[in-house]
Amino acid sequence: MRTAFIKSLMSLAERDPRVWLLTGDLGYSVLEPFAARFPERYMNMGVAEQNMAGTAAGLALSGKKVFTYSIANFAVTRCLEQIRNDICYHNADVTIVATGGGLTYGTQGYTHHGIEDIGFTRLLPNISVVVPADGYEVDLAMGSISGRSGPSYLRLARGGEPVIHTKPIDQSLFGRALMIRPASDVAILSTGSILGEAVAAADRLTAEGIKTGVYSVPVIQPFDAETVAALARQCSLLVSVEEHVTQGGLGSAVAEVLSGLDNPHARLERAGVVHGISPNAGSHAYLRQLHKLDANSLVERIRKISNLSAKRSVKIK
């Protein structure tokens, strides 16, 4: 995913001389090609994220198209007020690129888990919040970012995630929830690289007779309320899946849509990260299991609710 990003960014920088890349002294073995090709538009800001975000705003307010790069909490949380005031309020053309979104830096501990970033960013004005699941979704995101001016948050994982899409995604679909498996009784809405677990879970459930669809939701802000509302009417159960706390992220965005719908609509189950249960260390895969975000846990969770629903209708009336 990071490779797809840097490839896409370099191609954009070739076409658009306004493109600058700032890093908070991170990106070893990822950013070097950009630095070598565009040394005059690449800047290592040092370990100083507040200054990076403010400087990015200043460059953007002077006509540049700026990308900042760091690990999720450092890219977003450390300098949230600069992002809020200097970038978003001024509608500055800055894309904040976070690597290690979610639990990808599992063993590195809580300081490195980007699990509140979607919530922080989606509250801000003018910003587009994009959480790609694979390289194709990165290309979709970069296609949109290259053609728009204004703030964006691009939350990347780390690399090595499964490629789910089979071909480039049509640019017109940017902003939409993307169908991976058609929805029936159950629809999983997934954001980011956890999509592989969601698809595996859905395929097993469908094979068992619990027809489960999957939508990938790479754009959290602005949110595709239309598709979610349609799914809520069609299905009896929606399950949001994200490597993010269950408050403030995808699950909350879905709940906000449901709260405005007349009954009946689907019940919502929010799968996500729970504060306070992660040990000090744990691999990405281990933490996904712990937070019940792996395919097995998702299957069990959905099966349980569906069994209940066999006894009584689960749909909210």
Partner: peptide
């Protein structure tokens, strides 16, 4: 050039403008 109010923001934004110029 810049809306301000929270302290400590202006110098960084000025750095960005200075770099661009």
């Amino acid at each position: 050039e810049l809306s301000s109010g929270s302290l400590g923001h202006g110098l960084s934004v000025a750095c960005g403008m200075s770099l661009a110029l």
